[in-house]
Design a binder for these strands. Structure first.
Length: 491
RNA sequence: GGGCCCGUAGCUCAGCCCGGUAGAGCAGGCGGCUCUUAACCGCAAGGUCAGGGGUUCGAAUCCCCUCGGGCCCGCCA
């Protein structure tokens, strides 16, 4: 246990004093509480200096600050609905209670109050308090009242302090939750079934990324945490579930930076008897819906509204190959050999390893020549076949697959395919990928190929990074701003 | 992996360049005040200057190492 500071000693003394005087500082419950907005609403009919003695209310929340004036004191109590001023008066509470409470109250205490709506002479909606109840005495003082908690490290390590000190941070995470709810409602209404597939897998597949490895004592073998949701979900379409989605944590054993987190929340949607054009329309509808919801939730934040409005259709569209050729001046990109592409990629200053795949070099070129120019939400269409083994070849463009990605300025938001359904071609593509990369990071999932042999309907699928989507909608630049407890080093 | 920056009271920050008794505001303590909104006035208190080592008569300050964090670059289809 940490060494007790003088401030904490003072507060423990107040705990003991409360108990000695019959005021339990950590009670069991506090029934009948309304949120602060109810009291503020009840104040609207009152004139300054007015009180509504006939309609008592009970509120509870965190004490932010106390302003004492001898025989009257004002205290700001904050709950999720906002802040409410409490008026404490010696002539209402009685001399001894008034003195005892003011001696024992500290910023940060969780406090209950019974009283009546009242508007102060200066016009502030308030609760004129008849009775106070300590709900939880705070031993550790909260951050400074005006500046709040500034230390970035502390804000991440102790997110609860960040939250209790900042209504803005509370609001941000509340909005994230409501946006995810909206997303579920949209997909549910479109006939999609929410499912849950395994996080623990023998071999993590569906993407190329380093997995986290753990161990099952029961099976006496290593297991990996999933790096994508894709392969189990498509198996469900083989099984006839037709339209499924999963929102879940996905893990990649890689670096954390402003757009990457080792654990992140991913939405994947799979839709049988539909192709990537259908998926594009579904995605545009989803973006528009989330845009509207964001603006509805945060109408008074101009920067957020501006960020969200970028998600209003129609969206910019570019062709991967045409745009890359136009911006780089490279001709006939698709006929270049792996060695040629490697030289071109290295010429941009990239240091990707020599044995990287053709797809990797193409991605590097796109990243260098095209991504910096993306200044709005943009659909990038029809990637070269070498960039993914899971998409179906393009029905009319040779050397391409039916794949689109959605980019927001600065990062990728989503990745969608018309899914490859031919089992023999899938097997070949997996093997080609293995052979080309020369490493075992892209696992060959034999059971998935086996599943395709039973027949996967024509299908489209998409993966959307929820953390990044929330970032983009709210106009935030760091993924840590939308993850409650980002990974931090043990201290 | 490379570069730059940061770590001082519970919190927000000065002090560091140019070495010489560790400062302020908020919060907390004591006293005053019946309408404040970061209330106000007075008094007293509060420190592992991230940790370790070095230079020096003397280190928060200069040097080295370590830990933690931030930003940029690289890597991660």
């Amino acid at each position: 246990m940490a060494v007790e500071s003088p401030l904490e000693r003072e507060r423990r003394a107040k705990v003991a004093r409360g108990r000695a005087e019959g005021r339990e500082p950590y009670p069991w419950s506090f029934p009948g509480r309304v949120d602060s907005g109810v009291v503020r609403a009840a104040c609207t009919s009152l004139a300054p200096g007015g009180e509504d003695l006939d309609h008592p209310f009970r509120v509870g929340g965190r004490l932010k600050i106390v302003r004492q004036h001898g025989k009257t004191a004002f205290a700001d109590l904050e709950d999720l609905a906002g802040s409410l001023q409490l008026i404490l008066r010696v002539d209402v509470l009685g001399e001894s209670d008034y003195r005892a409470w003011l001696a024992d109250l500290d910023p940060g205490d969780l406090l209950g109050a019974d009283g009546v709506p009242a508007v102060s002479r200066r016009g502030e909606p308030s609760l004129l308090v008849r009775r106070l109840t300590m709900l939880a005495k705070a031993i550790t003082p909260p951050p400074e009242k005006f500046h709040g908690l500034q230390d970035v490290e502390e804000r991440l390590r102790r997110r609860y302090v960040d939250l209790l000190a900042s209504a803005e941070v509370r609001e941000r995470f509340r909005v994230r939750s409501l946006l995810v709810r909206e997303l579920r409602q949209y997909l549910d209404a479109a006939g999609f079934l929410e499912v849950e597939t395994p996080v623990l897998q023998a071999v993590a597949g569906g993407a190329a990324a380093a997995p986290f490895v753990t161990r099952s004592n029961y099976l006496d073998r290593d297991l990996q945490l999933r790096i994508a949701e894709e392969l189990p979900l498509k198996r469900l379409l083989v099984g006839g579930l037709e339209r499924v989605y999963e929102i879940g944590r996905t893990f990649r054993n890689e670096d954390l930076d402003s757009t990457h987190s080792p654990e992140f929340t991913e939405l994947e949607v799979y839709w049988a008897y539909a192709d990537y054009h259908d998926m594009r329309r579904l995605t545009e509808g989803l973006f528009d819906r989330l845009r509207a919801r964001t603006v509805e939730l945060l109408p008074d934040r101009p920067e957020t509204v501006r960020a969200a409005e970028r998600f209003r259709p129609p969206f910019a569209t570019i062709d991967f190959v045409e745009e890359l050729e136009r911006r780089s001046g490279i001709d006939d990109l698709l006929s270049k050999s792996r060695e040629e592409l490697r030289s071109l990629a290295w010429a941009t200053g990239s240091t990707v390893p020599e044995n990287s795949s053709t797809g990797t070099f193409l991605d590097k070129l796109f990243e260098h020549y095209v991504e910096p120019s993306i200044d709005r939400v943009t659909f990038v269409m029809d990637f070269p076949a070498a960039t993914t083994p899971l998409a179906k070849r393009h029905r009319s463009k040779p050397g391409r697959v039916e794949r689109f990605e959605v980019f927001a300025p600065g990062f990728e938001l989503a990745n969608a395919y018309t899914e490859l359904t031919d089992p023999d071609e899938q097997e070949e593509r997996f093997r080609a990928q293995l052979g080309e990369r020369g490493d075992d990071r892209y696992a060959y999932d034999a059971d998935y190929v086996e599943a395709l042999r039973y027949g996967l309907p024509p299908t489209t699928g998409i993966g959307i990074g929820i953390d990044r989507l929330v970032m983009a909608l709210l106009g935030l630049s760091s993924i840590k701003d939308v993850i409650l407890f980002p990974l931090v080093r043990a201290r």
